[in-house]
Simulated scan of single mutants.
Amino acid sequence: MTLGTTTGKLIIVAGPTASGKSALALELVRRFDGTIINADSMQVYRDLRVLTARPDDAALAAAPHRLDGILDGAELCSAARWAEMARAEIAVAHAAGRLPIVVGGTGLYLRTLLTGIAPVPEIPEDIREAARARHRAIGGEAFRAELAALDPDAAQRLPAGDSQRLVRAYEVVRATGRTLGDWQREAAASVPRYRSRQFVLLPPREALYAACDGRFRAMIAAGALDEVARLVARHLPPELPIMKAVGVPELARHLAGALDLEATIAAAQQATRNYAKRQFTWFRRQLADAEILDTQLSHSLVASVCQKICDWT
Rank of each mutant, 00 (worst) to 15 (best):
I12A: 06
E89T: 05
V50A: 00
V50R: 05
R193H: 11
I292C: 03
I90C: 10
V302A: 09
G97F: 01
A207T: 07
A155M: 07
G223Q: 10
D68Q: 10
L24R: 01
L3G: 06
G20K: 02
L51V: 06
C310D: 14
G223A: 03
E171A: 08
A218T: 05
D182I: 03
T6I: 14
L147R: 00
S196W: 00
R81T: 15
L231V: 08
R98T: 07
A288G: 06
Q307C: 08
M42F: 09
E125K: 13
R215T: 11
V103S: 08
G247D: 00
G105Q: 00
Q43G: 08
L24S: 03
R30Q: 13
E84I: 09
D213Y: 04
L158V: 03
A137R: 13
R278F: 02
A39L: 13
A258G: 11
D47T: 07
G140F: 03
R178K: 06
A23K: 02
D72E: 01
G257M: 12
R197T: 13
A25Q: 04
L150A: 05
C306E: 14
M42S: 08
L147D: 06
A18R: 10
Q43V: 05
G161V: 12
T5N: 11
K21Q: 12
A83R: 04
G139M: 09
D40G: 02
H254T: 01
T7L: 05
I90S: 10
S78E: 05
C306N: 10
E262D: 14
P241E: 12
V29I: 05
L293N: 06
S196I: 07
P121F: 04
A263Q: 15
L24V: 00
E141C: 08
L208T: 08
G8P: 13
A62M: 13
E129N: 12
R174P: 12
A256T: 03
D260A: 07
G34I: 03
V29A: 00
V232S: 12
E291M: 06
A218F: 05
V167I: 15
V50T: 13
L158P: 04
I265W: 01
Q43N: 07
W282Y: 08
Y209K: 00
R230W: 00
F283D: 01
A148W: 09
